[in-house]
Structure formats: C-alpha cells, structure tokens
Design a protein around this nucleic acid. Structure first.
Lengths: 239, 239
DNA sequence: ACCTGAACACCGTTCAAGT
DNA sequence: ACCTGAACACCGTTCAAGT
C-alpha cells in the first residue's frame, strides 16, 4: 500500500504554478482590482501566490518596484488610437490624456506612487511617444514639446491622485464637506478676498475643470516663450 | 525615613508636561524635522511624549489628521510679504509660490499628503487669501482667479511632492539614472518621436523648469476663456 | 474628559538554510 | 538561481479600565 495522504493532497488542488515576473504582475493587478492598492502588500500577495513574502524579493527589489510594474501594466489600457485618428490635434491630445486619467482614476494611490517613482515601463514609453506625435502634428516640437508633455502628464497624474479622498476613503464626503465649510466660513475681515471668491472655488464639475485646465496648459505652452529662448545661456549654465 | 526612590525618580527629569493639541503639534514638527515624516508615527510620537499611542487619539482622529495639522503649522513659514510689496504682480505671485515650494521641499511626503487630504488650516487660508489678493491686483478675479489659484497651488504642491525620490530616498540617484537611461535608450524604430526629443526631456535646472511652468500657467490663465464663458449653461447644469 | 496598557491585526525586509 | 521559514523591527487603531 502506498501512503495515500501525501500524493492525494498534492492532487487535490491544481499544481502550484511556478513563480514568474509576469505571473506575479498579473496576480498583483487582479489583487489590486479586487481589494485595492492598499491590500497589494508583499505579504498579502505572497499569500495569494501560496508562498512566503521573501520569495517575491527575487523578482522585485521592494514594494515600490512592484507598484511600478503594476502601474505600467495598467497603462496598457490607455486608449492611444487618437494618435493616428483624424481631427484637431488639441482634441486628440486631450482625448489621450483623458483616457490616461480615466485609467488611473480607479486607483488614485497608484497615481500618487507615479508622482514619486517615475514610470519607465514600455506602456509609459508608448504613451509618451503618442503624446509627442500628436504635439508634433500641432507644430509643437523640441524642448517645448518635451517640457510640455511632462507638464501635461504631471497635471493628469495629479488629477487622478487627488481623486483619492473623495472616492476611496471612508470619510470622503465628510472630509470634503469640512474643507468647503472651512473655506466658506472664512472670516471676511481677515480673509476678504477669500470670502469674496470662496463660492467660485467650488464651481464646475470635475470634467469642466479638467477641460478648462487643458485649455490653460495648451494655451500656455503655445504662448510662453520656448524654454531656451526665455533664458540667457549664462543662466542656463550657472544653475 | 521616607522611601527615597519613588520621589527621587519623579524629580530626576522635568515633570512630564500635560498633553495638549498645540504641544503635540510642536513635538510633531520637531520630530519630523529631525527624523523625517516617515518616522512621525503615532507610536514614535507617543514615545517622544512619554505616553502610549492611544493617548494621541484624544486629539487626532487618525494619522492623516495629525499630518494635516503639521502641514498647516509648517505653512506658517511661507513668506507672504510679497502680497503687500510693490512690483509687478506676476513676480510677486511667483515669489509666494516659490516660498511655498521651498517650505515643502524638505518634506515631500507632506506635500504628497496635501494632494489627498486638502489643507484647511488657518495658515493655508492665509496663503489662499494672499494669492487671491495678488491675482486681483493683476486684474484676475472671480472664477478665473478661484480656479487659477487652485491650479497654481496644485502645480506647486506636486513640484514639492515629486522632489521625493531624488533627495530623500536612499536610491534616489540610482532611480533617476534608470529613468533617464530608459528614455534615452528607447528604440528609435518603435518610439521615433521619443528618441528624437529624449534629450530635451532632461534639459534645464529645476528652477528653470519651474520658471517656465509659471509662465505657462499664468499665460494660460490669462488667455484661456474664463470658465463660465467657455461652457454653455446647459453643459454646466448637466454634468 | 482625559489618559492608559494591552491587544488585534497587520506591515517591509533580511538572512541563513535549503533545492 | 530560485525559493523558503523564521525572525527583526516596526505599524494604526480599538477597547476596557482607570483617573
């Protein structure tokens, strides 16, 4: 008689799959989508993969690197078709950025991590490439395009990052109410300008505000002196 | 004979001060300046105050609220004198924002927290008031000023938040090198525009880039259609 | 009301030892 | 090279009990 328990217990569930970077990332994305980035920890992920946390350090140097990989994976969902579409270049640019914001909107904490550890995966490169292509078709090139794309993405990332409190956290509405309340009830003696304009601070939907900001950024990028032109070469060298 | 040990040990160090919100904030700021925001935890702070972590929950509902209080305290250091100075309004506005960035620059993680939990302390209100006053002196009022000040502060906060990796974290330079390397070595076949412009992405000092961005934002705020004007009231109502 | 000890339920990361 | 158990050094927050 062969000992029945050991072989059986091995067959009771599908064989534990071998670890791989791609597999870990796939599991990470699934875990994040089901439980949020907050729960995407080395320990929780290891548990999901039926191993110990130490095993993950073979593939990722630390948690930040894991999150960066997840972010790039997610960026594969950004719609880049406007790059080759017809139509006004400004609208195509805004469509891409809006898709980027949309993708990050569900995971504001991932957007926050992107502000610190700059993404550099292939999907991020493809996004940069697409934005630069559209800017070029609008006549924006060189340093103006390079600095401009950085600024546009910075704004878009922040827009997604800010979404955090109002949607994910439990006391989201409470927080927002306290914020608006604090501004609205500002003493007109001490803060006359604030009191006069406080209502305007909260007007507009998120979409309206984004649209306005895109106009601001694009107008600014087109009208501000090109970086190199606006500064003396002495200043450039000295800082 | 009185028992000597108990009374003596009570007198060996200054009497433990009573807890108070102001005192806790002061200790928090000191702790953050000496050990960084990462070490400003409920437990570490309680240890510093010679009490248990549970005691702090009498004054702050959670860690986020503690950090918000510390942030507002720090914002007291922002130089608001340009509000009443003479000189071109654009320069005065930029001087205030630069001071704001400077203050947050040493504590990027605090800037990051400001992106999520919007500040609303008195020093933040004073900052808003000052910025609105300067904008008004430049003829920018109402919704344009309100949305504009929000955008300017958002950019400034992000600028400080991004400072994180390159200065505080241990592998700062390493990270940055990997980032620039990834962009510079992008395949010219797959990413032609990126390859063509990748050098421009890294030009300029932080100061030059900030200066350029301020020009972009101000030009944009001044030239983009005022929020209300650019959108139909139907759209305004429907979103 | 304010304060506390102790507990609950977690973290990231390293290291020596295995295969 | 890849994988692991176990340990080290921490976290935030709550709760019952005290003053």
């Amino acid at each position: 008689m062969t000992a029945p328990t050991a072989p059986r217990s091995r067959r009771e569930r599908p064989a534990k799959p071998a670890l791989s970077r791609a597999g870990i990332v796939a599991t990470s994305v699934a875990l994040m989508k089901s439980e949020g980035l907050e729960r995407l920890t080395m320990r929780r992920l290891a548990q999901e993969l039926d191993t110990g946390p130490a095993s993950l350090y073979v593939y990722f140097r630390n948690t930040a690197e894991l999150h960066a990989a997840v972010l790039d994976e997610l960026l594969g969902e950004v719609d880049l078709t406007p790059v080759t579409d017809d139509g006004p270049w400004r609208e195509r640019l805004i469509d891409i950025l809006t898709s980027y914001i949309q993708v990050l909107y569900e995971h504001p904490s991932l957007a926050r991590s992107a502000l610190v550890a700059r993404p550099r995966g292939e999907h991020y490169l493809a996004l940069l490439e697409g934005l630069l292509a559209v800017l070029k078709s609008g006549g924006v090139k060189g340093e103006r395009a390079a600095w401009g794309v950085d600024l546009l993405l910075q704004f878009a990332t922040t827009a997604a990052a800010e979404h955090g409190t109002r949607h994910q956290a439990p006391d989201a509405q409470e927080e927002w109410a306290a914020f608006t309340q604090a501004l609205r009830s500002a003493s007109p003696e001490r803060y006359p300008n604030l009191a006069a304009t406080s209502d305007d601070l909260f007007t507009g939907s998120p979409r309206e505000r984004r649209t306005w900001i895109f106009q601001v950024l694009l107008n600014g990028i087109l009208t501000a002196p090109a970086p190199a032109a606006g500064m003396s070469s002495t200043l450039r060298a000295s800082v």
